[in-house]
Design a binder for these strands. Structure first.
Lengths: 143, 143
DNA sequence: CTCAATGCAAACCGTTTGCATGCTC
DNA sequence: GAGCATGCAAACGGTTTGCATTGAG
């Protein structure tokens, strides 16, 4: 997506087109990695973009509220992570060795969810799935 | 399980049998609720059990490390929650209205997990599933 | 008697907030 | 020009830690 595309996405959400909103969207749209606020802050610093950490947090909040980003919490981490919302339902496969996080685009729960909804009386609006294990590389180091 | 049963579980794990370990195990074993450290601390205070909050945290850490408790993180909460480990695989159904958390004892992922392991090259050691929605009561208040 | 458990106070770290200033519409 | 965005510093809340004291084995 072009820079103008990001601007359009911001305006389309009824938001003001500001410098750091564009920068954050551009930055996260270029990776499949889940980044924390501090990671984003540091990576931008390296590119000589002087943003304040509070602004990172506030911008992330706005973009999450407007479904441009997703906020993700990983079991065992105290920080939140963020990803660019590509509107593709997915889950994560997480390596306990190197902390690599890999998205999985096929979801095993659609059918199950309907049954659960019927049986529980809940109106189910979403779910979250994570798989944990050891990737090919880290498997080898498991003595 | 009797009080002596909890003591045996502590000793069996090679741990010292101390006052607060027994109290915490007894307390969590009586509920299916996921409690935070502060909730445990407050509930014990109400029962006139004067434990220090640091001790709650340290005791929880020990019991989690020894598989007597499970540490659970709920999406969107910054605190950890804890449950007595009954060695029954389960997941959670969480109401976005009243924050009620209900365990589900049937797991849809066994077969899928094997396939994923084969396809991804990961050695999968576990997973985590949560369903979000609105319970019967809260459904009614959704305007 | 020894070493681990506990209490207490202070530190820590991710995140949020109040306020003054700057920028978008 | 009005009101939201940003920078800065301070506050916040959950959790951890250092150190002195207590208690289990």
């Amino acid at each position: 997506m072009t820079k103008q595309g990001f601007v359009n996405r911001i305006i389309g959400a009824g938001l003001k087109n500001t410098k750091y909103r564009v920068i954050l969207i551009e930055h996260l749209s270029k990776t499949e990695k889940l980044l924390s606020a501090k990671e984003i802050y540091k990576q931008l610093s390296k590119k000589h973009i002087a943003i304040n950490l509070s602004t990172v947090y506030r911008t992330l909040d706005v973009l999450v509220d407007n479904n441009i980003f997703n906020r993700v919490t990983i079991e065992g981490e105290k920080q939140s992570r963020y990803e660019y919302n590509r509107d593709i339902h997915h889950h994560f496969l997480i390596c306990r060795g190197c902390n690599k996080i890999i998205p999985i685009y096929d979801c095993p729960l659609e059918v199950y969810e309907e049954r659960l909804q019927a049986e529980s009386g809940f109106q189910i609006t979403g779910h979250r799935v994570e798989f944990y294990g050891f990737c090919d590389d880290c498997k080898k180091n498991l003595d």
